[in-house]
Nucleic acid binder design. Structure first.
Lengths: 364, 364
DNA sequence: TTGAAAGCGCTAACAT
DNA sequence: ATGTTAGCGCTTTCAA
């Protein structure tokens, strides 16, 4: 019923005639429509809408009434086209997956910071696909977002150079950019990973497995380096059998962990370098009933980690702070485009919960 | 360094002079810039950009080269302003919290469906605040989104009438709209809740507690109705002490559950009507060490529910399908605005995992 | 205090 | 195969 009623405006002959005269049978009222109805000029309506000074109270009342009658809503897109600063009052957020809890918290933080600036957030997922990262950047910049927050998955972000030159603030999160100088908000992956592995080493473990996700992600490399650094510093030789990367899914990690656990020389501890990977490892440990025998430390916290048995010891990052700082940096850079490029490190901390405190077997 | 280089274009005298002539020291190349550089008309550039037929291969090559040299990127916002259909190729998604796992999966599904249509997604969170819901709708419609997917939190969505009249497709998810006729994609909350409670009743429970989140959310009401219906049908009188709604956070639910468990007449089973509430209940059960004594069924699945001890029996909804169908409905309605309003029900199913199969104590 | 005219970057309609 | 003109809904500039 509603959809067959094609007159876009509320009742009232005048507005219907106007709409008809413009050939439109449906659509939204414009400032011109409001101006005509209120008997004032377009510019006066603009002044009222933008709350500019120099309009008499009486005129404001007339214009406001006309706006209400026509359900007028200003078109921000059209406005930004002509506006001096050309701001669209929108930013783009590109993460690995908007449904990953870590990414989702970054998203929420960015949204909160953006909302405080009357800015809307486009959000999208790369799915860790390099081509998708590029096409999402194109999709957002061609919509003239005022800034971009990117969790880069590719090996090279030099393709962003023209955007940077055009003045679009671009802030990387969670992973440093490669091939381009851009702001970055990030955990200290390498040191945090080192911390985790040192914790296991201190308990006497030497057969510490490393399970990572995709090798082309910079943060995974940093976490691996932290693992290797800690092992080397402790004088422990790394068994290549205990290093497995490119676990592209929870299921892949599950399979890898099962294989390691069942091998001739299983690890006595596992360092899992990503939240999805951890969930696969946890499943494997339970499936083989060794969850109380093999130690586990996870990079990245996850919901209910503390309710498992044993509760999972993690290196907890602070995604909300990461997202907030990234968004705030966008707005800072919008204010002052000449700011020097900066990397902001957000602390991660070891949260001891039990799984990381399981000692190695006595007969080792 | 890069930011002090104000010439918007790549090097090359011509383009710099052009930019200077237009008074711009910074910014992006426009079709006019490309046309000038390629020595063709604006319209020809437009034809190349839009891959319209009727341009010679030689001209295409010249124009393409000019575009590359100027790092031209078409402005979709400006284009949509003049285009016949006035599409912005964007949609808005409004959920309770983009960082809630359920909402995040809906988001991901909507994004996937939108991407297939070259449409970008604005996403935002109401935080269950009614005023925020309205202001987000305004924020998105004033950016001329082509459609809106809303998880309504208010008691009344009649304020959407002008948007509907203007022809914007609006699809509700998870909760039916109130006060307005709009498409809706939803689980059958009442029957699914009834199913859960019947499951507990069948095991012999009669003291079944109901813990819900915010009472002004329509789906919570439906879940409560399902609970009451099942209890009544079984001839079981509901103890008002065992019904607690308005648990606005995980912590609130934790407190409520602790109180019930410690009361003179504790429940033998708990039906928790929302995922965040469930997590509070789980913590309470563990804290009082009754997680193997008091049965629990949760409305809504959550990550690792199957790894807890006992694993949590849930009524699992299908948020990905909900989000996908909602987005698809937006595009259907964009194709054919006269479609009748429709409610799509997505099945939810009981997943038995252990916590819901704990029998009542023998001495009851 | 108010208004007229120009124009943002693009697409549409109509030339040539 | 290519170009010209108008105009989307707004902001800006300048005038009254």
């Amino acid at each position: 019923m509603r959809y067959s009623m094609h007159m876009g405006f509320h009742d009232g002959d005048a507005s219907q005639r106007e709409a008809g005269a413009r050939g439109a049978v449906k659509g939204r009222a414009t400032m011109r429509d409001v101006a005509k109805r209120a008997g004032v000029s377009l510019k006066t309506v603009s002044r009222v809408v933008n709350e500019e000074p120099g309009v008499s109270a009486a005129t404001i009342a007339i214009v406001t009434a006309a706006m209400d009658e026509l359900s007028f809503q200003r078109d921000l897109l059209a406005g930004s086209l002509r506006r001096q600063d050309r701001r669209s009052d929108s930013i783009g957020l590109i993460v690995a997956g908007v449904d990953n809890p870590f990414d989702a918290i970054i998203h929420r933080a960015a949204e909160d910071a953006a909302a405080a600036n009357h800015v809307a957030v486009f959000a999208a997922s790369t799915n860790e696909e390099i081509e998708r990262e590029r096409s999402l950047v194109r999709a957002f910049t061609s919509r003239r977002v005022d800034g971009l927050i990117i969790m880069p998955c590719g090996r090279d972000q030099s393709y962003l150079e023209p955007e940077l030159t055009a003045g679009t603030p671009i802030i990387m999160v969670d992973r440093p950019p490669v091939g381009v100088a851009a702001d970055c908000v990030i955990s200290d992956h390498q040191n945090a990973a080192k911390l985790a592995v040192e914790h296991l080493l201190a308990a006497g473990h030497t057969r510490i497995a490393f399970l990572g996700d995709l090798s082309h992600i910079a943060s995974l490399q940093a976490r691996k380096d932290g693992y290797l650094e800690a092992m080397q510093a402790a004088g422990v030789t790394v068994d290549p059998e205990l290093m497995a990367i490119d676990n592209h899914s929870e299921n892949a990690a599950l399979g890898t962990a099962l294989r390691m656990i069942s091998s001739a020389h299983p690890p006595t501890a596992i360092f899992s370098a990503q939240n999805r990977v951890t969930q696969g490892v946890v499943r494997a440990l339970y499936e083989r009933n060794v969850h109380k025998k093999i130690a586990l430390v996870s990079f990245d916290d996850f919901p209910l980690a503390d309710m498992l048995n044993p509760a999972v010891t993690v290196v907890a990052q602070d995604p909300y702070t990461i997202g907030r700082l990234a968004a705030e940096r966008v707005f800072e850079r919008l204010e002052n485009p000449k700011l020097p490029v900066k990397t902001i490190t957000v602390p991660a901390r070891l949260v001891r919960r039990g799984s990381g405190e399981i000692p190695p077997p006595a007969d080792e």
